[in-house]
Design a protein around this nucleic acid. Structure first.
Length: 486
RNA sequence: CGGGGCGUAGCGCAGCCUGGUUAGCGUGCCUGCCUUGGGAGCAGGAGGUCGGCGGUUCAAAUCCGCCCGCCCCGACCA
């Protein structure tokens, strides 16, 4: 136990300094490292394997809903970026510019995409003539660059990886349906794959995407009670199609502007997973996205090494057929060292196999989330492992949901609102008059923003029937979620 | 970008205030022996332009200036 204490000191306690805990976990678990370029990180193999699993799980859903992947250029000519006024105004402060090709100054500066609406819209304009060309349902996996003032590993880096869907539709209704469909895809994906419960809702005018008509979001609660915007889906209306002249001739022979959507999630999700599930011992990965689901650790002495290791190889080979497993038979590390190492890396299930187990034809399974030890007859290996992985996945979601619900509060008045935001954090579900002024004042007073206006089962913003605005006391228009956010 | 902190071996740090042998310690790494059910032990060894540039000085990790990077708190954002 003394040794364990010493080990855990390598990670700043979560309760003491959440930010430092986060950085320690990212680095000790070997997910990412800093580089010589400001704000840019290298995603190390373990972190990238995690991202690949997240990416693939989402990619399947994007394709299952009828979208195709494509790839558009990294560069956006300045003239294109400037076409949509709100859009350029929103992104201008954080755009990186290419001004030279070799030694020659460029005639027109090229923005490195902060997002691809402009470049994609300019191309869609060429592709679309008829209503028969619609809908366009395209997604791209790409890197984008935003010159942020302050960066944080995974949560906000200068360059990051993401997916951005860009669709065109014949009618407003169809675009709205697509916007909500993808929002719900994100929600289901976050909860099923990442075990990360989210609140789905609409952003306020102040918080919406530059150039969008409506922005929808999924908001997750991190271990320190702060909100993380985990994905967004925008109904772009006709703002871009009018500026980029994306038109089609409809069945009634009238030329019309298309209705568009865009939606995205990024490597930020990796940060979300860490801050949703991690504990004092390090990372806890949901089995469905964990690069290694089961780590097999043989325990042996010189005399038993051969028999134990050969059995461990057999066990791992059996597991390989049903899940992602690895064997760590290195003899320069003690079993205890390995236990700590794989807990730090968040491997959901550990399988211990020693001489005592061999004698009984069993192994020891240890859950990362609860650290519970389970003796398992080798004859039941596959089924027990699969059941446990499934259980861990469910329990992580349940635990995160309980944490979120326990930290979602209602308040009696504005004093209590301020007190809760200052001391307890979490979400506050409160009535709001719908006014700009109250939204901004609350932000100024408490650093809390309106994370979203939640949606009902019909995907409509829930309007308040009663109650009065938590700040001004005027009749409430909506019940909304407030929180401090990343 | 404003306020604060930090930068010395892969990682974590001491040394700096008060300039002066060959820049230390822990851990990790390499070799050997030994060990292995919660980060074992012993012995030997390798590893440093002290973040960068400039200045002061006979002499700079140490003093001064500028720059870069990281962390925290604000403002801005996925």
């Amino acid at each position: 136990m003394g040794n364990e204490k010493q080990f855990v000191q390598e990670i700043t306690p979560k309760s003491e300094d959440f930010s430092q805990w986060y950085v320690d976990v990212v680095r000790k678990a070997d997910l990412a490292d800093y580089t010589t370029i400001k704000g840019c990180m290298v995603i190390k193999p373990y972190g990238y394997a995690l991202w690949e699993n997240i990416r693939d799980a989402l990619d399947r859903r994007i394709k299952a809903t009828g979208h195709q992947n494509a790839y558009f250029p990294l560069f956006v000519p300045e003239s294109l970026l400037k076409k949509e006024a709100a859009h350029v105004e929103g992104f201008a402060p954080e755009v990186a510019w290419v001004t030279h090709g070799g030694n020659e100054p460029l005639e027109e500066r090229l923005a490195i995409r902060p997002t691809s609406e402009a470049i994609i819209c300019s191309i869609y304009a060429k592709w679309i003539q008829s209503y028969r060309d619609l809908p366009i349902l395209i997604n791209q996996w790409a890197n984008v660059v935003r010159w942020e003032k302050v960066t944080r590993l995974f949560l906000r880096t200068t360059e990051f990886l993401w997916q951005e869907g860009h669709t065109c539709h014949r009618t407003m209704e169809e675009a709205q349906e697509e916007t909500i469909k993808m929002l719900r895809v994100y929600q289901e994906f976050a909860e099923t794959e990442l075990a990360m419960p989210v609140v789905a809702g609409q952003k306020t005018e102040n918080e919406k995407f530059p150039g969008a008509l409506y922005t929808y979001t999924i908001e997750a609660m991190m271990g320190d009670g702060k909100a993380l915007q985990a994905g967004t889906s925008h109904n772009l209306g006709q703002h871009f199609s009018k500026m980029f002249e994306i038109m089609f001739e409809d069945e009634d022979q009238v030329r019309k502007y298309v209705w568009q959507t865009s939606w995205g999630v990024s490597t930020r999700l990796v940060g979300g997973v860490i801050m949703t599930h991690g504990d004092e011992h390090g990372l806890i990965l949901p089995p469905r996205i964990a690069p290694t689901q089961v780590i097999v650790i043989p325990i042996f002495q010189a005399a038993t090494k051969e028999s134990v290791v050969s059995k461990a190889v057999q066990v791992q080979e059996r597991l390989t057929k049903v899940c992602r497993s690895q064997l760590d038979a290195r003899d320069q590390y003690t079993p205890g060292w390995k236990f700590n190492e794989y807990e730090l890396k968040g491997v959901p299930l550990r399988l211990e196999l020693g001489p005592k187990d061999l004698a009984k034809e069993q192994c020891v399974l240890v859950r990362r989330d609860t650290r519970e030890k389970i003796f398992c007859p080798l004859s039941e290996l596959e089924s027990r492992v699969l059941t446990l992985l499934d259980q861990i996945q469910k329990d992580l979601l349940e635990r995160a949901r309980r944490f979120r619900d326990e930290n979602t509060r209602t308040v009696a008045n504005y004093d209590e609102f301020q007190e809760v935001m200052e001391n307890k954090r979490g979400f506050i579900y409160a009535p709001w008059c719908g006014g700009d002024e109250c939204e901004l004042k609350i932000k100024e007073d408490t650093k809390a923003t309106i994370r979203c206006l939640p949606l009902d089962e019909e995907n409509r913003v829930i309007e308040a029937r009663e109650g009065s605005c938590v700040r001004c006391g005027e009749p409430a228009k909506y019940y909304v979620y407030f929180a401090r956010a990343y």
